[in-house]
Amino acid sequence: MTGAAMTAVPTSAGRVPRMLGPSMAFPASLVVLLIIMVPILMLFRYSFNHFDTVEMMQEAFTFENYVRFFADPYYRDVFITTVWVAALCTVLALVLGFPVAYFLAKTQSRYKSLFIILLVFPLMVGNVVRAAGWMVILGNAGALNTVLVGLGLAAEPVQFMYTPTAVVIGTTAVVMPYLILTLQSVLEGIDFSVEEAAQNLGAGFLTTFRRVLLPIAAPGVAAGTMLVFILCMNAYATPVLLGGTGLTMMAPALYDQITRASNWPFGATLALVLVCGTLLLALLSNWLIHRRYVRTMAS
């Protein structure tokens, strides 16, 4: 077999054409360039334009939109709120999702694919529909309050809707399947005999997790966490429907600027701040995780 493979190499028939790789990547690259990069570059240009309440957007080159963003406490707070909500949801999804992913990675159950289908199921329903579901549960006359009041745990309905709590619950639920699926595939790649080796050497369950499993899984955990953080930062439907006026995040705010106020330059500025802020925070957290765990794992 080796002999056949060796003789096959020099013949031109079996060789991979040199331009095959680039030419296969070309269509996708073109699409990315046209439908993602071009709009972002246009928004970038718009963010330096001037807004006039009568004339709308005017060609200009001014930093006034960025100055407004950083000077106006309202928008600064919107940004900070967004980061907090996204971070909280990411941590919650991680803490709640890790055990599920661990279970899925280790289980020998024949129902494993059923579990995974159940996990993917919510992704087939739009965010809006899922948010509507949460409204039914969290509303003042909703399921949760009915139970609370019915059991006498609360004298009157608790206000869940249009609070940060509702947004955090809703967003965490949206992103959790993504995190679990990423973590599960990472954990499945780990040879679990390292866990057994750790126990055999005298490590209990928690020590094994902290000193062996977590560091080995760290690159995958970092990737999944970053994906989920980005999803949370850009959440739109869930914050709008569950947060209402009680909590404003970046995506709804910039949508308002563009559609309601027709202020394209400022909307573009918010969009760019969101994109760059998300990117910076994601890279920062990734770097921190890598410095803590992955330094030694690079191959």
Partner: peptide, 29 residues
Amino acid sequence: PVHKRNTGMVFQRYALFPHMTVAENVSFG
């Protein structure tokens, strides 16, 4: 439980901790 038995096991696929050096692997136990 496993970690209280004090047996020294060598696994078929070695099961070394990939994120630790040789000395760190030995040091773990």
